Simulated scan of single mutants.
Amino acid sequence: MEPVGLELKTSGQTEFMVDMKCEGCVSSVKNKLLNLEVGVKKVDVDLNNQVVRVLGSSSVKAMLDGMEQTGRRARLIGQGIPEGPHVVAPQISRFQPLWPNSRPSCLGIVRLVQVNMELARIEASFSGLTPGKHGWAINEFGDLTRGVASTGKVFNPGDQATSEEPLGDLGTLDADGNGEAQFSSSKRTLRVADLIGRSIAVYETEGKSSTGVAAAVIARSAGVGENYKKLCTCDGLTIWESR
């Protein structure tokens, strides 16, 4: 695994809906993003649609935190590569307590984006974990009927079978004293398009054979330019009421 932001080739485009009212809002948001420590190469703002497009490799969390520090609400609406032959829509996994005996307080979200044909970017945010290290991995199946136990082995396609570490091994999450964990890295040879319908599992300890505490199915998420709606027709919530 490689830390995101160390290589320019991990750059992609990320789109946010930001609650902006005027050119002053635009300047404030743009300046904040351009002054993040690493990773932001270009910022475009569409005030009419309240959309901010960021080109670079900074983490989603860092960008969201930065924009919200300006006093404006911001929501992620899309990720991907806007041009080129290797465009792959991002994938997302949302962790919620959906099966019996799952840890009721464990919530999280994982985003996977193909930045080029040889490199995938992975970002995750969790809460409700026990403090300490937790192994996590992409597993073969998206079957959550028995939680982590029914998700199969760590994903490892045939062309990776001789590798010491399975391709789907994501290493460890380090939960702080509040049970929160953040993760931002990249992984070579991982093809995001091959992961739809599989699962991501989090374990009680660093070992991938220990008791599983949470799992979620990997599904397609919105790509660049695909999600400008501000009202969800499913539940009637506005984008600012959702998280």
Rank of each mutant, 00 (worst) to 15 (best):
S59C: 05
V113A: 13
T238R: 14
G24F: 03
N178D: 09
W240T: 11
E83V: 08
D174N: 11
K133V: 13
K42W: 06
E241C: 11
E2R: 05
S210G: 13
L107S: 08
A193L: 03
R188G: 13
G177Q: 08
D46W: 07
S58Q: 11
S57L: 01
E83L: 08
S59V: 03
P3V: 10
V217E: 09
T238K: 12
E165S: 09
L47H: 04
L64T: 13
F141T: 04
G171C: 03
Q182F: 07
G207W: 11
S105E: 08
R73F: 08
S184Q: 10
E83M: 04
N139Q: 07
C232E: 12
I239P: 13
G128Y: 04
W136D: 06
G108F: 00
D176N: 11
C25Q: 01
G177Y: 05
G108M: 06
L98P: 01
A120D: 07
S163G: 06
L195V: 01
S186T: 15
L112A: 12
R146V: 02
Y228D: 15
T162F: 11
A137Q: 04
L190S: 02
H134V: 04
K153T: 06
N48L: 10
Q114D: 14
E23M: 04
R111M: 13
E241A: 14
L190C: 05
N31V: 02
I81T: 03
A216G: 09
V51H: 05
D46F: 12
S210L: 11
G179W: 00
A89V: 03
V154S: 04
V18Q: 09
D174H: 08
G236T: 07
V60C: 06
G66T: 06
V18H: 05
K32S: 03
A216I: 07
R121T: 06
W240F: 15
E226G: 11
L112Q: 11
N101G: 12
K41G: 06
